[in-house]
Amino acid sequence: MNGPKDKSRIEPRKEPKQKRSITRFHSILGSAESLIVEHGVVQMKMTDIAAHAGVPVGSVYQFFPEKAAILKALLDQRLVRLKQDIANGLTGIVDRDDARERVMTFIDHAADVHRTNAIYRELWAGMSLDPELRRVQFRAHEELGILALRFLEPFINHHESGCRESRFLLITMLTGSVLRCVAEGHDKAESLLAEWKLTMCEMLFPEESLKAA
């Protein structure tokens, strides 16, 4: 897959190092998140972020060249948390039954986070509008798939054909699609979530599928 043509437009112009800069950086991101939740990604403007954060608009541009860079920073924050949640949820698995239950529990947790935090709905929308952010999202799915495989590989079917990395990438992408439905409040989101949990376990632990609740 081709990389972004202009990576600089979705990356912070500089990383804050001093305490004051770090505080301002996070204040800007917090204001952006509040405005996104209240008005949506499309309506959010850099001038509005500056006014909400109580800083000159130049301070916003000092860190972020444009709105896409803010969206990526918000995504990066959540990606760090999600990776930690995966590590916490899948560390110390004892057997296949435990692995299956851990996966189901994690998906329920992720769904609840998307269901109760409007920022996820808007981030999904923002990612879909920008080609470079869609590439970032794809790479995030790759990273999450590799991380989940690291914990679950000892417990999945080792006689199946195919590339495990590709299978876990597919799982993370499909999980993301279902979670987007949950975040957007689609009428069939909950039934899709329940069906996906069963389908995913059939993919990972096929002999366990008959035990699915």
Rank of each mutant, 00 (worst) to 15 (best):
R135A: 08
N157D: 15
A148F: 03
E165F: 07
S128W: 01
E142F: 06
D130S: 11
L170N: 06
F155R: 08
V136T: 09
Q137L: 14
E195F: 07
G185E: 00
S166E: 14
R134E: 07
T175M: 13
R134S: 07
L147K: 13
V113N: 03
M173N: 04
F138N: 10
L147E: 11
E132Y: 08
F151T: 10
R135M: 12
P154Y: 00
W124V: 11
A183V: 04
C163S: 15
R167H: 06
H114T: 01
H158A: 15
L192V: 01
L149Q: 13
G176L: 03
E190Y: 05
L170Q: 13
E143H: 09
H159E: 12
E184W: 03
L123M: 14
E142I: 13
L179Y: 00
L169W: 05
G145H: 02
L129V: 05
E143M: 09
F138M: 10
S161I: 09
G162S: 07
E190W: 01
T116V: 05
L147G: 10
T116F: 04
E190P: 06
R164M: 13
R164N: 12
D112R: 13
S161A: 14
A140N: 09
H158Q: 13
L133Q: 08
H186E: 05
K188R: 10
W196G: 04
E143R: 14
D130H: 15
E190F: 05
R134K: 14
A125Q: 13
R167N: 08
F155G: 13
D112E: 15
T175W: 00
L192I: 03
H186Y: 01
E142V: 15
E184M: 06
I119T: 11
F168S: 05
A189W: 02
R134T: 00
V182G: 02
D187P: 00
L144A: 14
A118L: 12
E165A: 14
V178G: 00
L174R: 11
A183I: 04
D130L: 06
L192D: 02
D112T: 08
A140W: 04
H159W: 08
R180L: 00
L169M: 09
H159L: 11
S166C: 15
S128H: 12
R139A: 13
R121L: 06
E190C: 06
R139P: 00
S191V: 03
E195Y: 02
W196K: 01
L149T: 03
L170Y: 09
L147F: 07
H158C: 04
C163D: 15
V113R: 10
H114I: 00
